[in-house]
Write a protein that binds this DNA or RNA. Structure first.
Lengths: 353, 353
DNA sequence: CAAGAACGAAAAATCGATTTATCGATTAGA
DNA sequence: TCTAATCGATAAATCGATTTTTCGTTCTTG
């Protein structure tokens, strides 16, 4: 019975209107909080809404506005903690403002990124939070610009002449990592990363290098990077160690690199921190429970998400003016994977206490 | 110039119609592939579409249908690889069929789960893929049932009398883990898990216990579980070891448990597999690069996602009949964290070759 | 050659809300 | 007392598509 009732068409604003004995326009006004409605009628409307369990159809409600109450979010991937948390945060913030978040993964492809954006444009989203695959100069940002979309760029960006940007302060965090490693006496450090084209990866690299050289001009910094894929990085790293290179510390500019480094250490039977130290950009839950715990740079996901949404909604509401470029401070967690060099090479297992 | 042109209102179907010198209805028909249009007119429509860069507004297009071309996805969280991959897959599959996926995180709360569902119902989504927080008997599934929504339940479910279900074959995988551990000679095994109320966790527990006892009736199986939160589990585990209990292997029924087990091992200075063996349900990328690599049950994410979408769309298209309950086979990866008991207790680091 | 079938396309209704224009009734002002 | 302003509410237009209905033409067929 209730089953049958539920299965039929949902009540529309006209059903509410006829139950309350008023017009649809009046119902709309009551629900919008307009005060020019006779209290008695307002009450009857609210009663009818209650009785019919009426809820506004967001789709129909959005029909007439140029900008729908939808926010699009495009992330390079959903599989990592960082972007997972980011989507969770963004979703919550959008919901708070009565917006629906539509999230999509570009799967690290700029072509896909642009396609998704085109689809979101079809939906007339009010705004887009774009975490570009590479940087702010990709085709996706260009598309947004060309079509007059409002949006914010996050994560792998530094600044842009058309959109507000929010990202972690990579350079500052990397400088802190440099202070940590140099402070512990490391004189030969390897930096690994992907996609040097990415603005932030470059910032991390330069932030580290500048600070390290300032502290100790004689320090040797090697850099191994690879465009796009992880596998070339892995083989370059393998070659590097194969040639007999023996840095005392590795700083990985991104999570995938940290995993590659760890697996190469495994291959060679090296243990952290006795054989080599390791610090990675990007933290993950597992890093504190493994042995050794992995030192990492923690990105301020909540702050980035919340700042991005603030800036976005300001623009959605019509704010004009030059774009701002926000950098949110990171936290550097020194953990067991970092030690002083020459503390007993190849003494695997001695890291016990 | 192009800038200015792009910024103004997007062309509607009427703009296309007037440019092509036909009516809006004709444009709609051409775009829908109806063949009763004179080829000449069809061509003019296509030309106008091209010239104006016209794209159908999905919102307006969905207005008249009872079920919009939107699929809702509700996951307990986005932070883990499993659900991250799941959302990625679901999104791709929805897109393939011309549907938009709206994903939301229930953040492990049944109350939030129901609210999200209500909002999706407001959107008149065609269907919902729900990964419930606890099991198929929660308020969310009840809401779906009461409102005649079509949906599929995945992951933490076994079967339901109203909805199709798809999940990993937890029992079979756990039995395989049992064969592995018993086969290696373990006679005292600890199982840890959360939320015994969850159907799948119970299945994992029973699948293991049944198989283990069948192979060796004298085997001792201890079980530590906790409802909802991780911290009670951690302290129970700490107490357990504190009492001097010394199982030779731990089987964690879920990822969070694996992390807790690892951190407790760390605390006590135990190394896998010499001091204790460890197997976890749910695999993660890092598990193969740490030392030791962690043995794990890999859930078939792609198969679950694809099967769920197949079943869902079948229902969306009107299929009737009793709900089906699919179980997709898992893969058990034996890695270094598993050894034979008594292979040198507390000999940390001896796991080198 | 006239009535009817077939065809192609336009007009109109529809989806469910919002917003603007309109209208009737009451009150205020001249 | 008559006109004007005010108030509250309704009718109608709108958003952008789809679908049904209607309406000319052309083509058959008796």
């Amino acid at each position: 019975m209730a089953q049958q009732e539920a299965r039929q068409r949902r009540p529309s604003i006209h059903d509410v209107a006829s139950h309350a004995g008023v017009s649809a326009a009046t119902v709309s006004k009551v629900l919008a909080g307009v005060t020019t409605v006779k209290p008695e009628n307002a009450q009857r409307v609210l009663d009818a809404v209650e009785r019919l369990a009426y809820r506004v159809d967001p789709l129909a409600s959005d029909m007439r506005r140029a900008k729908r109450r939808i926010i699009g979010a495009i992330m390079p991937e959903f599989e990592s903690e960082f972007f997972g948390q980011m989507v969770t945060e963004l979703e919550g913030l959008a919901e708070q403002r009565g917006y629906t978040l539509v999230a999509a993964s570009s799967r690290e492809s700029e072509a896909r990124e642009k396609e998704i954006l085109a689809r979101m444009h079809d939906w007339r989203v009010a705004g887009v939070v774009l975490a570009p695959v590479r940087n702010e100069h990709g085709p996706a940002a260009a598309f947004m610009k060309a079509n007059g979309m409002t949006g914010v760029l996050i994560d792998r960006v530094l600044s842009d002449d058309a959109f507000d940007t929010v990202s972690a302060d990579s350079a500052a965090a990397s400088a802190e990592v440099a202070r940590m490693l140099v402070g512990k006496g490391h004189k030969h450090i390897l930096i690994i990363g992907l996609a040097e084209g990415a603005a932030t990866v470059r910032a991390r690299l330069e932030g580290f290098r500048t600070q390290a050289l300032a502290l100790d001009p004689s320090i040797r910094i090697d850099v191994i990077t690879s465009e796009v894929s992880v596998e070339p990085l892995r083989s370059s790293l393998r070659d590097y160690f194969g040639r007999g290179e023996r840095p005392t510390a590795v700083y990985s500019l991104l999570l995938k690199g940290t995993l590659v480094a760890l697996s190469e250490f495994r291959r060679r039977g090296w243990h952290c921190p006795n054989d080599i130290s390791l610090v990675g950009f990007d933290d993950a839950e597992w890093m504190q429970v493994t042995w050794p715990a992995i030192a990492a740079v923690v990105q301020p996901v909540r702050q980035i998400a919340s700042e991005a949404m603030n800036l976005l909604f300001r623009r959605v509401e019509g704010a004009v003016g030059p774009p701002t470029a926000r950098l949110e401070p990171c936290q550097v967690l020194e953990r067991e994977s970092v030690g002083s060099p020459g503390n007993g090479p190849h003494s695997g297992g001695g890291d016990r206490q």
